Simulated assay, not measured.
Amino acid sequence: MDTAALVTWVITALGGFYMLGTWLTRGGARGGTSRLPVPVVFGHFALAAIGLVVWIVYLVTDKDALAWTAFILLVPVALLGSSCSPAGSPSTAPAPPPPRAPARTPPPSGTSPSPWSSPTACSPW
């Protein structure tokens, strides 16, 4: 089970590296279009990396205190990560305005919208 947790953690870390790289290349740290605070992003990254290293050391030394330390580090990592996640998702982007209905144009002058409203509507000619 310990190795399964390590494999899961490494796969998650690879996804995190990809997202961090994408964020950096799009100007996230320079204040581009990102709404994510730089300390939150790098705090999440740093705590996750430290937790992974602590877990690897736990696997090597088999000290239970290290496993609990890695677990305790995961709590702020998860909180910071969840605060980052919605801000970058497409669902938080402002929705485009709905299409406008075409304006109704009045009928040309001298015509009426209904044949029954015409003064000659009852006349056969």
Rank of each mutant, 00 (worst) to 15 (best):
M19P: 00
T120C: 05
P86I: 08
P115Q: 06
G88L: 11
L66S: 01
S123C: 12
V7R: 00
W116D: 11
A48M: 08
P115D: 05
R26L: 14
V77P: 00
A93C: 09
G31R: 05
S91P: 01
S89N: 12
R104Q: 14
G32F: 05
L59Y: 04
P86D: 06
P94T: 08
P113C: 06
A95M: 09
F71T: 14
P119D: 01
P107E: 07
I50S: 07
C122S: 15
P96H: 04
P108Y: 03
F42I: 15
A49M: 14
S89P: 01
T69I: 14
P76C: 03
P39R: 00
G51S: 10
A4D: 07
V77W: 00
T22Q: 14
S82I: 12
P107W: 08
S112Y: 14
P119K: 00
V60T: 09
P98D: 04
I72F: 13
R104S: 14
V60G: 07
A103M: 12
T69F: 09
R35H: 10
G28S: 13
A121W: 11
L24A: 15
P94M: 06
T111Y: 15
A67D: 02
V75N: 02
P115K: 07
A95L: 15
C84D: 01
P106V: 07
P119Y: 00
S83Y: 11
L20T: 13
T8Q: 07
T8F: 11
V57R: 05
G43N: 04
A13N: 02
W55P: 00
P108V: 06
S89L: 12
P106Y: 03
P94S: 11
A101N: 07
P113L: 11
P106E: 08
F71I: 10
T111P: 04
V75H: 03
